[in-house]
Design a protein around this nucleic acid. Structure first.
Lengths: 194, 194, 194, 194
DNA sequence: AATGAATGAGGATTCATTCAT
DNA sequence: GATGAATGAATCCTCATTCAT
């Protein structure tokens, strides 16, 4: 009897191994063999399931975005006011999970990958749109017409803080990151709809 | 007497070619041969002058930081009030030169490189320190004790805006980038030293 | 199930090809590609199985020493007197197999390799120790306390004759080589335990 | 005024540097640049004087053989009996100078070189002939018709002892080497003309 | 489903050698 | 006489990918 239903298990193992490997090396310069080994299988099997290295990377991006989206959704469930909605999004962005140096590094590298891979670019663009859309939706009742612009700045600030975390190798401090963004948000809220 | 004094010329040509090549490919995955060819020489000569690929990259980072630092200095010369100082720094960061998609892409990739290369990390850390120091100095008279925190956010925002430019491939819009950061700065200024 | 068990076959083919190639060129300056081609495979596979050029060389030394050791053992089986024991060792050292110009040349080159490679040095040292130990054991009953010194000279003489064979390119004459060493041995035996 | 008579000085510097470099590395795998640098000049000049790397090597062999020949001649001047003649040759072969590990290593490597280079082979063959001829001449009055064979064995023994010195890296012990060969010679002398 | 076997293509690096000055 | 400049030709090694089993 052939093992059945292995595919999703293998794929997930590979995707997680990919993220771990990129995080550890800090580069996309990881070999399929390294990934496959970490996932406990042969590199040939990795190719069998994904077709090629780039597709593994794309799947890894998709996976990370999916996790992130779920976190945001989860956080939004608890939020019942616009202000808490915005904070929920920021908090989800800097969740301990997303803020492990390994994850930060992967994220950075996927941005780089997006410059080569159309699919990667598409995925990251969607993520950015959603992030801004979510922020805008939360901000609208709070800052009115300025929601669009503010959302853009918050999104950029989130990414910028991320970027700086990928440097320095120090232990990422997500509380501080969170604070940094929320301080700005509050500033905008103070200003209100003016 | 042999032909002499070629070294600085060759080195600069290589450094510029490196940035161009990285910008064009969007990756650090460029070959020494490609770089050398673009610089109009053999790859052997590139090795002769730099010793290795990574050192070429490091020199490229150093070069970019140098140019940027000069731009900031140049912009600061004109600035005679704290507010214009801050704006000068932001403007220099988003100068047309630094905002060519090619440059943006290189910048991104150097962040990635910093995760592998100690020297690269060191250089970028210095850049970040200086940027924040400059901002802090300009902000102090305007926002008092909050200068430190605000400088951090402005720096992160600059990087975040940069990051988002590297995506989407569209023609970079430096006026808009500038505006995005300055809007935030003004917001902080309005709040003042409170 | 994949094709299996190729490794030992490939390794042996590579080792033999290495010796042949070195013998033919008279140098360690042979490329991995040459070796691999002669062994009927790609250079990449050679690297896959050995990890690197030096390790191929070391394996070749080990192989040659193994063959030689087996020859000595085989010759010793037939020997039932001290005198025949000594002769067996000498004869094995100059067996037609070991005396093919190709083998002689490899041997020479491995001595040179030992000056760079610790592992090569270790292996050759062990070989020398064993050779002398074997000789000493056979000589003890014949020359008593002088066994140590005589064994050293016989060993050196064997190597010296080898060395001279590697020169001149002429067809190696193993009978003569044999005689040369045995003449000396007999001289020592005549002197006896005095 | 152009520097004049530089040629012989430069050539000798290069030759000595070659021997030193080979001795230090234990291989012929030394670069012309290394040699030239050690000799205090550019690699281009080395080529200018010798035409190519192999010719530098050949000159180095010639130089070493010349020095050795001079040593033998010098030692022979003092010798006035056949027995002392033979000893003089052996002693010269193992002179401290020739027995520096550096020299031993070069010697070994030149044997290897002789398998590629006709000229090297020619030179070493001549050396061997002379050595044997000298030995034969000294031995004739002592061992009569056996002189030819004995000379061959002594020569081989000298080389074999050399060979073993190149291994093990230990400080070469020329007194012991000397003794090893002379013990054998005495043995032959005891046997006399029989 | 799974993998060991196998390779082609490519890339960093080295080096002997040439040349213009 | 002397050398910095320059390169073509290697060479080792890596790796994504394919294939037979």
């Amino acid at each position: 009897m052939p093992k059945i239903g292995m595919e999703p298990i293998r794929r997930e193992a590979l995707v997680k191994a990919t993220i771990a490997e990129i995080g550890e090396h800090g580069t996309l310069d990881v070999t399929v063999s390294q990934i496959a080994q970490r996932a406990g299988m042969s590199s040939a099997l990795a190719h069998h399931y994904f077709g090629g290295k780039e597709q593994i990377f794309v799947a890894a991006i998709r996976y990370m975005l999916g996790v992130y989206a779920a976190e945001v959704r989860g956080a939004l469930v608890m939020a019942d006011t616009p202000a808490t909605r915005v904070e929920a999004i920021v908090r989800a962005s800097f969740s301990p999970r997303n803020f492990r140096s390994e994850t930060v590094s992967s994220w950075m590298n996927f941005y780089v990958l997006a410059q080569r891979s159309e699919e990667a670019e598409r995925l990251l663009s969607i993520y950015q749109s959603r992030l801004r859309s979510n922020l805008r939706f939360g901000l609208r009742p709070l800052v009115g017409a300025r929601a669009e612009a503010v959302a853009g700045r918050v999104a950029a600030l989130i990414d910028g803080v991320y970027l700086r975390q990928s440097l320095g190798g120090g232990v990422p401090d997500n509380a501080r990151a969170n604070q940094q963004v929320m301080d700005y948000v509050e500033l905008e809220l103070e200003k209100g709809e003016k």
